[in-house]
Design a protein around this nucleic acid. Structure first.
Lengths: 237, 237
DNA sequence: TCGAAGGTTCGGCCTTCACCGTAACATTCC
DNA sequence: GGAATGTTACGGTGAAGGCCGAACCTTCGA
């Protein structure tokens, strides 16, 4: 079966520790150079270059030349979702080695971006708060923004029209659908999809959160603390 | 980072052609023996046994002893979703080799089970029909069963209460949420999650479809042809 | 125009692992 | 009890591929 070979090829590409580290680093949705990726993966630039060429040929990342720099990014949201789903399985099957969790890992568990939306303790707390306030209904399969929730997003100036089908089948009246995403560190769903992405972008542009160094981890600014408390009733994130 | 090693481990397990073939065969949700899996993967039983032991240690499959048989199945729906997402990326990045597609592959594209729900041309046609008839609303992120759709499922005797949150937060009134799943062969969404699973089970128990040999592929019975036409207005599946 | 830095390619070393043949063990059926 | 089936254990072989050192190519800045 031809599709089987392609399947093994893709999975194998993600299955090398070096490449896995680079893909992990690219999960924040930004574009990075081979040298940067080599640094985070703990390998030499020439090795990283070979890996990236292979990832590019396999369709997992795309390259964008800019002067003497070559920026690599994940090829599509589908790739990001694949990486997320592998993380879920890996987190679930991990023999819970009580091993040392460094400060780096702790920061990731507290709050991070997951391609285009928020994850970690903050992401789950946000989803919980929206559910508790009756602004979103969630199951493990899907979620829906209630009228109350739509009013909130409208008040925040978050545009959700992007949630419509690509076919542009006119205005979808009241129903804003959103995708839940099981958090690998919290084992609980957080908000993904168009709604989760829009909410995450708003948090950045409003100055509520910001990236730590150049990693996926994010920290909540004092302004963000205040707003998360007042708007979402989230304490101490 | 410890989670990174676990990630690479899981992806690597899925990245071997032999193991990929066996996982692919297990995607229909049934439990198979090492010898059967060896046959579909085209390797000897002793090689398959080694692979299965590794997959089991990695938490991708679980084993169930029954007499002199050891039945292997996917460890969790999360594993099935991971395999699906890898297939999506593999199908998207595959250089569309116009290569020979055998009758086996054609049968899979026509209709197959995808762990617990229907996929392939039939799965997509069903989802399209439900949308066209106003029984379900779908975006790429999520789906919702309308009142009209709830009435249909009720009429068919399909119980959807399983769609509630595990927390058992009382009866969810009108909103049945369902999960879309991008079909790797059709590149369009079909119905997954609790709703898709319930619908698929009903198709089997009602005798509308049945498995081909012992594969994931399914065929539509004459009775199914009639019902799909009369109930869903699907022609010629 | 020339030097420096980022990035890629080449060659060689090395480890890992998939695979099978043979053989031993466990369970079921006759 | 003995044959048949299904599964696991062990040793050897071969190929795939990860890794780095060094050389080469390209771009930027002086």
């Amino acid at each position: 079966m031809a599709s089987n070979a392609a399947f093994a090829e893709v999975a194998s590409l993600a299955g090398d520790p070096g490449r896995a580290g680079m893909l992990h680093a690219l999960m924040d949705g930004r574009a990075l150079t081979a040298t940067e990726l080599a640094h985070v993966a703990g390998i030499t630039p020439q090795t990283a270059s070979g890996h990236l060429a292979r990832l590019s040929a396999g369709g997992l990342v795309t390259v964008q030349q800019q002067g003497r720099h070559r920026y690599h990014r994940l090829a599509s949201p589908a790739v990001a979702r694949m990486l997320e789903s592998i993380m879920q399985v890996a987190a679930g099957s991990a023999p819970r080695r009580k091993a040392f969790v460094g400060p780096r890992d702790l920061a990731l568990r507290a709050a991070r971006t997951c391609y285009d939306h928020l994850a970690g303790h903050l992401g789950v707390a946000l989803a919980d708060a929206l559910v508790a306030n009756g602004q979103i209904e969630l199951t493990s399969d899907a979620g829906i923004v209630t009228d109350k929730g739509a009013a909130l997003f409208d008040r925040l100036g978050i545009e959700l029209d992007g949630n419509l089908d690509k076919k542009g089948s006119g205005k979808r009246k009241g129903r804003m659908l959103c995708r839940p995403c099981l958090d690998w560190s919290e084992r609980r769903p957080h908000l993904a999809g168009h709604v989760g992405g829009a909410l995450c972008r708003h948090c950045f542009t409003a100055g509520w959160i910001k990236h730590v160094d150049g990693t996926r981890a994010v920290t909540v600014t004092p302004k963000g603390q205040r707003n998360f408390r007042e708007i979402f009733r989230i304490e101490g994130v």
